[in-house]
Design a binder for these strands. Structure first.
Length: 917
RNA sequence: GGGCGCGUAGCUCAGCGGUAGAGCACUACGUUCACACCGUAGGGGUCACAGGUUCAAACCCUGUCGCGCCCACCA
């Protein structure tokens, strides 16, 4: 016997374990492979709504395809999350008042990170299991595990040898808190309130020029003032200490007299040239720009073009350097303190023209949240532009397809303007770059130190050193240290993630999995990592596998709170999926997310929706209980083609429609349509009507009909469980086992194919007529305030043969569901009865003396008016010649039929009104 | 500055050329032998606004007004 209700908290872990143990999540069978790689969650991560949605959708697809007989691999794993993990471990060390990372050294620190991972990392895996994710956990991978690390090394070395990875000194985004370079994507530009300071840079030798200060309508200067300075404006005064020039636009006549001359860089007391460059905009600020090549990306380009000296001003923590070109008083100051000091000193010297308040875009590190400083450093870069060519082509050619399609534009836009990818990070946790430096600074890139050393020896030998000299060289330079010193840096975490679709399948080994499961079928992810991850997988996949990594990229929505705001800890509006699972069960959460996953739209999650879908699960549970109580036992020998009862033919027909809709929707990633179709079928068709209509049969005497109805009902229930399983795996699996005591699990059952369902349009028409009649009677009763419990007699008025037949066939049913005492026939409605027009037939509820004649008159009149207005609308259309001529014939015909139906109805209602009194 | 998207019932959202829909909330009724996490019936919408295309527009086009997100070097 089924319990009164499903208890997700106790059932879910049990069911999950059984699936996992049985190997149900492993690829199996001879079916066409279906492969999905999970977007690897951070090892530090815990399940948030985004994960819940992402993994629910993947799981729906995987379970669906598994049931369709495909050999499904959902490849799970985690990401080592370089910066995030290092931060977490350092924070923990600080909390325990342990010595800092730098004090214990790299090796010890890494031991601690691995220990942390073993102990508290990967909590998200068990959380994904709670969601029901049907990953093949036996294949779980980690970006830092041995195989994936080998793949990283191999990729790095090959790209280096192909010239697609190189080392370069140039301006990078430097994070002064985390003390590492970061890529462009890790910089968040945020608008903040700042200031725009206008300074005077005095001209050399006290020179002067006439600067226009007023213009006529044609823009010709009318008034001048004599200036002995050039006016510059800046949002970062402290950087002036590193100015190498002042630039103006070549067309800017105002400054023409002083171009080529020099001005004094105040405070630094250096003279710098006034140059021309296309970069300055004459209409912005003063039109003159100070050029700080070492601390501004634009200025850097100007400096390069004009051969302007670069003055590095800050150390790795963005404190002013101890350098001879920086006045002593500023050295060691933090950049923001230096800024205050510079402004104060400029003002003191009378060189401050004005200060404006200004909104400025400031770059922040996405992890550290401190202002990023452009710094001149040596870093490793991937030549993304070259790799992007094929990645762009694959999408242009439709080999890889974005769903919804509009994301292709975003992808192209970024890919076509791609910049070199800075992949080195000054961190310890990550894949250390396989590069070594010789005593002369020469760089050797190889997969192992041995290989690099070999290469070095070959090189030094070629240069004429003997083996002994080489050995001496290493001793001289490094004592007893090895000849080569390894690059300290590690790779950007996304570098290893970029290899995920093939590294997890065993690459560079030629494993059977790689052969079978690459390229993968679909990547399911959020749009926030199209650049970080999707684009890079495309580049690496195409380069190393010579094939796209995935056919489809399904980009799902972001999950926002009820008000449409991003969920964030600081806003305190985070909805924890685990809390919802505790409260409503995983099935309810999953179904909600699927039902709301309409393409191209964000999800604003309201808890009420989850509750509603939890109720749906309960409804299903109770339907199953009803089946059980009525001995609707599943019969494997039952063949839906053999169903004789109209009711049974009808529900099979309807179930087939639902199965077809769900299948088509899932095939095109329309999760919400699939969920909606199933919800409607289960609740509004199966429960509301089929079970109700079956009651008279199940409680009746006709044992043959009863037997068939029991089997049909059980069969439809089993179909429902299958169809719902990808969405609500737990409750359906539980019911599957409970209702039929089957030995095969639902997780491995076959997806219902539409072709298994015999179509029965006649039966459908007949039952839908009955349903319509019952609804009409109920509606009239309610409107006329007939007590709900009262059983009243009904007359079919002047019924034709067809109607009489239907009444006879379904008399018990109609009587039961519409609460009727009797159904008889009569040539015309008795006076004072409530009359119902249903399609072509009229029915009368004999309530003479009980009903309010006026109310009934009003009710009928209202309905007549409704008909009239519908007829009017159609008439307007039909009166339009263009409509009749140009609209498709089906549409015109449909309107004609609709009109005829309304006219007939209107006539019947009019007659009813006439007969009322 | 460029790109993407959204404004449909009180709330959260489907629908994206041919009769306006769902869940929740709301109203009335209901101890009908699966279910009150329920049942039955019902109220509620000039589909942001203005033009246009079309026989026909919530849906396509243009513009306006609101709102969101992404990318971008104006010092």
């Amino acid at each position: 016997m089924l319990d009164k209700a499903f208890d997700p908290n106790s059932a879910e872990p049990r069911l999950y374990e059984a699936w996992d143990k049985s190997g149900a999540f492993k690829p199996s069978g001879q079916g066409t492979p279906f492969t999905v790689v999970i977007p690897p969650p951070n090892v530090t991560g815990s399940l948030h709504m985004g994960h819940a949605l992402n993994n629910t959708l993947q799981d729906i697809l995987c379970r669906f395809e598994r049931m369709r007989g495909r050999s499904v691999l959902w490849q799970p794993g985690m990401d080592h999350a370089g910066i995030a993990t290092q931060m977490v471990v350092e924070r923990e060390m600080a909390k325990r008042q342990e010595p800092r990372r730098t004090a214990i050294g790299r090796e010890k620190f890494l031991e601690k990170v691995w220990a942390w991972k073993a102990e508290s990392g990967g909590a998200i895996v068990s959380q994904l299991k709670r969601l029901g994710a049907s990953c093949d956990w036996s294949r779980e991978r980690f970006t830092m595990d041995e195989g994936l690390s080998d793949a990283v090394k191999k990729v790095f070395v090959q790209l280096y040898r192909e010239g697609l990875i190189y080392r370069d000194k140039r301006l990078v985004n430097w994070d002064p808190k985390l003390l590492t370079a970061i890529s462009d994507l890790e910089v968040e530009n945020t608008e903040v309130s700042g200031h725009f300071w206008h300074f005077k840079y005095p001209l050399e030798h006290g020179e002067t020029y006439e600067f226009p200060i007023a213009h006529d309508d044609d823009g010709n200067p009318t008034e001048w003032e004599t200036r002995d300075y050039i006016s510059i404006a800046t949002t970062r005064p402290e950087t002036m200490l590193g100015d190498g020039a002042v630039a103006v636009h070549p067309s800017d006549k105002r400054y023409a007299p002083i171009v080529g001359k020099r001005c004094l860089l105040p405070l630094a007391d250096r003279y710098i040239p006034i140059i021309t460059d296309d970069y300055p905009d004459p209409d912005f600020g003063s039109g003159a720009v100070k050029i700080t090549g070492a601390h501004d990306f634009n200025d850097y380009k100007v400096a390069q073009r004009n051969n302007i000296k670069l003055y590095v001003l800050m150390d790795e923590q963005a404190k002013m350097l101890d350098a001879d070109y920086i006045p002593e008083k500023y050295r060691g100051l933090d950049r923001f303190e230096a800024r205050k000091q510079v402004v104060a000193d400029i003002e003191e010297r009378g060189l401050l023209i004005k200060v404006e308040d200004k909104k400025i875009m400031q770059p922040f590190g996405d992890r550290s949240n401190v202002v990023i400083e452009p710094m001149l450093t040596d870093q490793w870069y991937v030549d993304a532009e070259k790799l992007a060519v094929k990645a762009i082509g694959a999408v242009e050619d439709g080999d890889t397809r974005f769903v919804p399609e509009n994301w292709t534009k975003t992808y192209f836009q970024w890919m076509r303007n791609i910049e070199p990818w800075c992949v080195s990070r000054q961190l310890w946790w990550g894949h250390q770059i396989p590069a070594w430096y010789g005593p002369d600074g020469h760089c050797y890139v190889a997969e192992t130190e041995e290989e690099a050393t070999k290469e070095a020896i070959v090189r030094y030998t070629a240069e004429g050193y003997s083996l002994e000299e080489i050995n001496d060289m290493r001793r001289h330079e490094h004592g007893e240290a090895p000849l080569l010193v390894r690059d300290e840096d590690v790779l950007d975490t996304w570098f290893s993630s970029a290899l995920w679709p093939f590294s997890t399948l065993g690459w560079p080994e030629e494993t059977p999995e790689l052969k079978i499961h690459y390229p993968t079928n679909v990547l399911v992810t959020g749009h926030d990592i199209i650049f970080f991850w999707v684009a890079r997988m495309m580049m690496m996949g195409l380069h190393f596998m010579k094939e796209i990594p995935f056919r489809d990229v399904y980009i799902h929505a972001l999950v926002l709170d009820e008000k449409g705001q991003k969920m964030s800890k600081s806003k305190g509006n985070v909805i924890d999926p685990l809390t919802l699972i505790d409260k409503y069960g995983a099935d309810a959460l999953r179904f909600t997310l699927a039902a709301m996953a309409a393409q191209g739209r964000n999800i604003r999650l309201a808890e009420a929706r989850v509750e509603g879908y939890r109720n749906f699960g309960t409804k299903l549970w109770n339907a199953a209980r009803f089946c059980e109580m009525n001995e609707c036992a599943f019969d494997p020998a039952f063949d839906p083609d053999d169903a004789k009862e109209t009711l049974n033919q009808w529900i099979i027909h309807e179930a087939g429609n639902a199965a077809g809709e769900a299948t088509t929707a899932l095939e095109s990633y329309r999760f919400n349509d699939a969920a909606g179709a199933l919800y409607k079928f289960v609740w509004n068709v199966f429960c509301d009507w089929h079970l109700e209509l079956a009651k008279p049969i199940l409680l009746g005497e006709d044992s043959e009909a009863k037997d068939e109805t029991r089997k049909t009902t059980a069969w439809v229930l089993s179909v429902v469980l299958k169809l719902l399983h990808p969405f609500m795996p737990f409750v359906t699996e539980e019911l599957w086992a409970e209702t039929a005591r089957r030995d095969t699990a639902l997780v491995s059952a076959c997806w219902p194919k539409s072709s298994q369902f015999p179509q029965a349009p006649n039966a459908a028409e007949e039952i839908n007529w009955v349903i319509g009649l019952i609804t009409a009677i109920r509606s009239a009763r309610a409107e006329m305030n007939v007590p709900a419990g009262a059983k009243i007699p009904m007359l079919a008025i002047a019924a034709d043969a067809a109607v009489s037949l239907r009444i006879d066939l379904h008399r018990d049913l109609i009587a039961r569901l519409a609460r009727l005492e009797t159904i008889a026939t009569a040539p015309q409605s008795p006076k004072g009865s409530v009359q119902i027009v249903h399609e072509r037939a009229t029915f009368a509820l004999s309530l003479a003396g009980i009903i309010d004649i006026e109310a009934e008159r009003a009710r009928l009149t209202k309905e007549i008016d409704k008909c009239a207005s519908e007829i009017e609308t159609i008439d307007k259309k039909m009166a339009n010649k263009n409509f009749v001529e140009r609209a498709p014939v089906e549409i015109v015909e449909e309107n004609r039929e609709r009109r005829a139906a309304f006219v007939e109805r209107q006539e019947k209602l009019a007659l009813a009104l006439k007969q009322l009194s």
